[in-house]
Write a protein that binds this DNA or RNA. Structure first.
Lengths: 355, 355
DNA sequence: TTGTAGGCGTTATCAA
DNA sequence: TTGATAACGCCTACAA
């Protein structure tokens, strides 16, 4: 590696002061044609780029945003993240992604808190959080304190987080609307025996969605049967296991709403393995509208969360703060039903299988 | 926000010097019990955390690694990235993820070069690159120059990159082995008409794998038929379109090897849409062994690239450099065949469909 | 074991 | 329009 090239090197060789070089670099003030050329030449000669860390220290900002999520590999988080990154790029920001691996990677290491600590060190100008403990009713001890310190140092926006008494910004999805439409859709297809698959009690989105299902059913005078709340988790395997449970039942639902699309995919997969078919033997609805749903057989009927808007709004909120504006404390993103092929009329279905 | 709390605040209130506080914070030298307690109290009182940017500037390192890839949303890249991040975390490093969106997000913006520039500003201690232009035979003008500057400032490891004359580290997969095994497998299943689907000429992994297929066939005295190299691209849609092309053929292959698993998934999907079935009507093999392959019907036979090792080796190589060691310039990661259900004996297949 | 002081590479303030 | 110089917040010889 060559000798360190700093702004001083450039200044000396161009025969100007460092301030002039700095001004040239940032275009923050006029620099005479003559000096401009001199500087330009030296910069090119050394292929010089200013040191971002020094600039960050001096300006007290990094133009980086933190994004804490459980796992980018999960299409729901991955897509939201990508959309956020695109928007950030447009606005001149870079995103530091923090995967907490569901808070459970190294033995007993609390990845989420660890990342919160890291980001608290002023490495970023703002933070977006989604999933993880912000969804939990009972959070780990000390967690709130760390989040609060983070909030004290930079603006924070939580996507769908439910922890109360936190002075942060929020972008929330109005799940109720989409689920209401979904239930109406199923009922219009003559389904009355509707189950709910996956998720975990104590995790807010699960509670929120399950309640929405119940209310949606109540509108039609249908009561939700607790035995039809099966499966625990958020992955393909969750759906696979849940389907096996459903098979064991004496009285089975004719349709199920899943906590997310991956779970729905698991059910479809499992059904085929048992020689049954979706939707003929069971109507299945997902949630999130991840890109895979279009490529399943059958294409899965689901609720679109508008991940693009979710990611963009989170970034926009943060950047507005950083620009001294005062964005809404809470932004609501609407959801909508996406009707595809995985739910059919109950009277046409349930005729091929063992159901 | 409160007044800025710096190491001076702590030092003053604890009645010690800043260097003592610094030593306490870093555990770099012994500090007497008494002062240690005093400092600890003040730190707790203010919930103080040292400013990482200042530390970075002072130490001339950030303990951050850059990771440039086309799209985390793609399971192959996503998984490799996650594995790298895990390993980095274990070693005390954080990863700055740079999604180039296939270099094509903002109108005409060269995202990849933009990220290379950003990382060149010494924001990271090392960089990992995968996918994108490093795979291309014809790179954009100016690209090499930027990569070279990056390499001059920090160690760089390329995963499967093929650009020559670059003084960087490499982690490469030995695709040949896995493909050889795959071809042997297909031939042992009595396939002689074997096609290749997806990829793009001019992209190294495509050339590399296609050649491997040809050589694998040659061993058995079978000649590859160029008409059976169909489809262009790396996505599910690529497979869908390719299958439609295959359907049009008078003389069709009985088995196809795909450039990656997503393409294989596309073919399976498309076949079902046409009322055909895999593997009865066509044997299909993927490449990469992404997690989705296990959940397809049929589960797809593929080549495992050992993404975990890929990600870890890249990080290990970088960190060794940073620790003053001299790791191997090139690390080879073996591949292996994963036999599942998407390829069957040619004599048992091809009997249900229109094939 | 502790403290002083200089350095890390920029930006920003204030004169000139 | 330009240039000296003081931050920015921490680390680390070096000296005590």
């Amino acid at each position: 590696m060559r000798d360190k090239i700093t702004i001083y090197t450039i200044a000396r060789e161009a025969g100007v002061s460092v301030s002039t070089v700095s001004r040239f670099l940032n275009g923050s003030a006029n620099v005479s044609e003559e000096k401009r050329n001199a500087i330009e030449n030296v910069v090119r000669k050394y292929n010089y780029r200013p040191n971002a860390i020094a600039r960050n220290l001096s300006k007290q900002k990094t133009r980086m945003l933190g994004f804490i999520l459980p796992d980018v590999t999960h299409p729901f988080y991955g897509t939201t993240f990508i959309e956020a990154e695109k928007r950030a790029m447009e606005l001149g920001y870079t995103i530091l992604l923090c995967n907490t691996m569901n808070d459970n990677m190294l033995n007993n290491t609390r990845m989420e808190e660890r990342y919160i600590d890291i980001l608290s060190e002023k490495l970023v100008d703002g933070v977006i959080m989604i999933g993880g403990h912000i969804n939990e009713i009972d959070v780990p001890p000390g967690y709130i304190k760390k989040v609060n310190r983070l909030i004290e140092s930079v603006p924070v926006v939580m996507i769908n987080g439910e922890i109360e008494d936190l002075d942060c910004y929020r972008v929330v999805t109005r799940d109720e609307l989409g689920i209401r439409a979904l239930i109406n859709h199923l009922v219009s297809l003559n389904h009355e025996k509707i189950g709910f698959v996956g998720g975990a009690l104590g995790i807010q989105p699960t509670n929120k969605r399950l309640e929405a299902v119940k209310r949606g059913l109540a509108v039609h005078g249908i009561e939700f049967k607790e035995e039809w709340f099966v499966g625990s988790g958020f992955n393909i395997d969750t759906g696979i296991e849940a389907f096996e449970q459903i098979l064991q039942m004496d009285d089975r639902p004719t349709a199920v709403v899943c906590i997310n699309d991956l779970v729905a995919i698991g059910i479809i997969h499992s059904a085929i393995k048992f020689g049954l078919s979706i939707p003929q033997d069971l109507s299945v609805a997902g949630f999130d509208n991840i890109y895979l749903t279009e490529y399943m057989i059958p294409r899965v009927t689901t609720v679109d969360l508008n991940l693009k808007k979710l990611g963009r709004m989170a970034v926009d909120t943060l950047v507005q703060c950083l620009n001294g504006k005062s964005p809404e404390k809470t932004t609501v993103v609407e959801t909508r039903i996406v009707i595809r092929d995985s739910c059919i009329n109950a009277r046409n279905g349930q005729k091929f299988g063992i159901f």
